[in-house]
Amino acid sequence: TGIVNVSSSLNVRSSASTSSKVIGSLSGNTKVTIVGEEGAFYKIEYKGSHGYVAKEYI
């Protein structure tokens, strides 16, 4: 489990790349469930599926 550490919002992406499609966003202080790691990204549970967020903001 981690907490989103941004002042505005954090993009949730379809894969572990900054060039991948943005599938949603999370507000600061949102609790997320981390299910894996891939490079500079965490794989998280997101809306019944999975998404990826940059580690530096969790």
Score class of each variant (00 low, 15 high):
31 K>E: 11
1 T>H: 13
21 K>R: 13
41 F>Y: 11
13 R>I: 06
29 N>T: 08
23 I>G: 01
26 L>K: 01
28 G>R: 14
36 G>P: 00
16 A>C: 05
52 Y>T: 00
45 E>Q: 09
42 Y>V: 04
47 K>H: 10
33 T>M: 10
19 S>V: 10
24 G>R: 02
4 V>K: 04
34 I>K: 01
52 Y>P: 00
43 K>G: 02
4 V>S: 05
52 Y>I: 01
8 S>L: 10
10 L>D: 02
1 T>N: 10
35 V>L: 15
53 V>M: 03
25 S>I: 15
44 I>P: 00
34 I>N: 00
51 G>M: 02
9 S>N: 11
39 G>W: 04
43 K>W: 05
31 K>Q: 13
32 V>W: 03
31 K>T: 13
10 L>V: 15
51 G>L: 01
12 V>L: 03
37 E>W: 07
45 E>I: 14
50 H>E: 07
54 A>K: 10
55 K>A: 04
37 E>D: 08
6 V>C: 14
20 S>V: 03
54 A>D: 09
33 T>R: 11
15 S>E: 14
55 K>Q: 05
14 S>P: 03
10 L>P: 09
44 I>R: 00
26 L>F: 04
48 G>Q: 08
3 I>V: 13
25 S>G: 06
57 Y>E: 08
23 I>E: 02
20 S>E: 03
1 T>S: 12
33 T>N: 11
16 A>E: 02
27 S>H: 13
22 V>R: 05
41 F>I: 01
22 V>T: 07
48 G>A: 07
40 A>N: 13
47 K>D: 10
43 K>Y: 07
4 V>T: 07
56 E>M: 13
6 V>W: 06
40 A>F: 09
13 R>W: 15
58 I>G: 02
14 S>F: 12
22 V>G: 03
10 L>F: 05
50 H>P: 05
1 T>V: 15
33 T>Y: 11
56 E>V: 10
38 E>R: 07
12 V>E: 00
18 T>W: 14
54 A>M: 14
42 Y>S: 01
42 Y>D: 01
41 F>K: 01
12 V>G: 00
44 I>S: 00
23 I>L: 10
55 K>G: 02
25 S>Y: 15
46 Y>H: 05
25 S>V: 15
23 I>S: 02
2 G>M: 08
3 I>T: 11
57 Y>C: 11
18 T>G: 12
25 S>K: 14
18 T>C: 15
22 V>P: 05
8 S>Q: 12
55 K>H: 03
9 S>E: 11
20 S>M: 03
24 G>N: 02
13 R>L: 15
15 S>M: 12
29 N>V: 06
42 Y>H: 03
25 S>F: 14
12 V>I: 08
35 V>F: 07
52 Y>K: 00
28 G>T: 13
19 S>G: 11
33 T>E: 07
22 V>E: 04
9 S>R: 14
22 V>C: 07
44 I>K: 00
57 Y>W: 10
13 R>M: 15
57 Y>K: 07
25 S>A: 12
53 V>P: 00
7 S>A: 13
4 V>Y: 03
13 R>F: 15
41 F>T: 02
9 S>M: 12
34 I>E: 00
40 A>I: 10
38 E>I: 09
56 E>P: 06
3 I>C: 10
13 R>E: 02
28 G>Y: 14
37 E>G: 05
17 S>C: 08
54 A>R: 13
20 S>K: 02
37 E>C: 09
53 V>S: 01
48 G>E: 09
4 V>M: 05
42 Y>M: 03
1 T>R: 08
